[in-house]
Design a protein around this nucleic acid. Structure first.
Lengths: 339, 339
DNA sequence: TTGAAAGCGCTAACAT
DNA sequence: ATGTTAGCGCTTTCAA
């Protein structure tokens, strides 16, 4: 791809390279007529600047890195979209990498992005990451980094999160207000923090409404799968036939439980109400449709980029960055699985 | 980020920049001892080459662009993953862009990628793209381009596709072999080509089994939505109570139809069998689960990158590229919605 | 075995 | 208003 350079334009027009460069950028000290001539020729030659040369000079790439635990995932896919859309507005392009919930990949990919000289990095920590030296090093090297969704409190950088605990409390409260007296909770492995927070939110709601917490009403899904939910739905009702509400920490598991319970001939929501978490696409198409907490991925992606962009600018201006924690509001989406 | 340069290493060691560069790349004409010293220092200083300078010299970025119509989409998300994984193996990073099924975005994004000097582009045409000058220009400029999934026959470049017509024929045949006599087809707007091909495959199967094609058994979903399927499912059985099989051109619409038909008290698959297309995640969680055609997105992504990579190398070596058309095999996934 | 030097294409301070 | 010049960090040819 032998592309057009400033030099060629300059030679054709018999002026200097510097003048061409300035004319193209609309510097005020270039005469209108020259600007005209240059810009016309540039257009007709389909000139576009060589981004490597530009980046080499300016030391910025207009590229950011986005490390995501899992791409094929409704929530994360929404985040990707939010980031890309927002980045485009500011002229940034996004390199997407998948950590696959693996610490090793996460570390490698951080390195790759560093080597590509991206201007900043957005990362959601993998569930298997337990120490954060690799991230800290990148931050310490002066690279703007913003964490989203799965974060670590020990990392000193900006974070975009939802209030998992508050949202879970809202979800459980929703069940209580609709008349549920005995509410089971399906939780997950106690990592990431989001899972713990949802569990705590569940307890908060019970407490606030004077319902005593019973440990045996808390079940654990190890694989976060539909099948887990299917099995647990049955188990819960065998162990506690009088359970009239279930709050699951994630939609997919809730969907499994809902399906099994319906198949058992139990009426939803009349006998048992079910509440999920995330508002995945599938919550709209189950029978009955699933009430859940909307976790606004797109919005999180947008905010994450905005914050990162701000920090990129500050870094360039040598300003000191004060990490911010931005909480994105969630809301209850009521559908047919709760009264 | 004041990073370490070759110059610094050279000065520290009292040797020339060129020697450092060669030592780091393991050139045979550098003594082992020098290599040792250089490599050790580089490591301890955490040196990594400035990618802009490298790219400026070598004119390659090790970056490719991936334009996808829709990120929040099970099939396309799988493609993204396939591309990223495969690209990583070859040391490439992927810039992801979403065209949103818009011709204007598609055109803009192609331009952005060109300006970023990516080494190659992977693109699936938006449904609203009807002429291809913008893509052709990029190809003519010498940029390696590979089309995947939604392609145009008029574009002279490699293409990665599935055999939609054959797969649809298989799906319809599956229904016929399971005893369906009167099979309706839900199709979509006759753009992209994939939709047309699936319709033709449906006809092929009927013909092969001596079933006469009836135009009134073909319905159209305008929005490719669950709601469309829900409405059409009812409509089909009102118009033709004796229909005993439905082949939908896409899973989401099939899911809507399946739900409505079940709600109407009609037994699936005993009275009506339903077949989808794509094998989206949701096909596993409907009640009954949905039989469908597996459209291997991940594999397509991998193959698309492999082909692109091949062409990038060939372009670099000034070889002539002969466009290839690669068909990825599909397979029928039988679940509960067909006998 | 090593180094000098040119140059990739661009920007920007400085000079004219 | 325009041009000169230096240099961003690297690779690679050619000379020593």
């Amino acid at each position: 791809m032998p592309s057009v350079t400033l030099k060629e334009i300059a030679e054709t027009l018999g002026i200097s390279i510097a003048t061409v460069s300035k004319a193209l950028k609309g510097y005020p000290d270039i005469s209108e007529s020259t600007k005209q001539r240059v810009q016309e020729l540039a257009k007709s030659l389909n000139y576009h600047p060589n981004s490597f040369a530009q980046s080499l000079r300016t030391q910025q790439s207009n590229l950011i890195g986005l490390i995501i635990p899992e791409i094929v995932h409704h929530f994360f896919a929404n985040i990707i979209q939010g980031v890309i859309d927002e980045a485009k507005k500011e002229g940034y392009l996004v390199i997407v990498l998948q950590s696959d919930e693996s610490y090793i990949h996460e570390k490698e990919q951080l390195q790759l992005l560093l080597e590509k000289n991206v201007d900043g990095i957005l990362i959601s920590l993998s569930d298997k990451t337990v120490h954060y030296k690799h991230v800290k090093e990148v931050i310490d090297a002066g690279m703007p980094v913003v964490l989203y969704d799965k974060i670590s409190k020990s990392l000193d950088c900006s974070k975009i999160i939802i209030d998992d605990r508050g949202a879970a409390k809202d979800a459980t409260t929703h069940l209580i207000l609709r008349g549920c007296q005995k509410i089971a909770h399906i939780s997950g492995p106690l990592k990431p923090q989001t899972t713990i927070d949802r569990y705590l939110g569940y307890k908060d709601a019970l407490k606030e409404h004077g319902i005593s917490f019973q440990k045996e009403l808390v079940y654990t899904s190890e694989n976060l799968s539909y099948e887990d939910g299917y099995a647990l739905g049955e188990q819960i009702l065998i162990d506690h036939p009088d359970v009239d509400g279930i709050f699951s920490f994630t939609d997919l598991v809730a969907t499994g439980a809902l399906t099994k319970i319906r198949e058992m001939g139990i009426k939803i929501p009349d006998q048992v109400s079910i509440m999920g978490f995330s508002n995945w696409f599938l919550a709209r198409i189950t029978t009955p449709t699933l009430s859940t907490v909307d976790q606004p991925g797109y919005r999180m992606g947008q905010e994450a980029f905005k914050q990162l962009c701000k920090e990129i600018k500050m870094t360039k201006d040598q300003e000191i960055i004060l990490p911010e924690i931005i909480k994105i509001p969630t809301k209850i989406v009521q559908r047919q699985s709760t009264r």
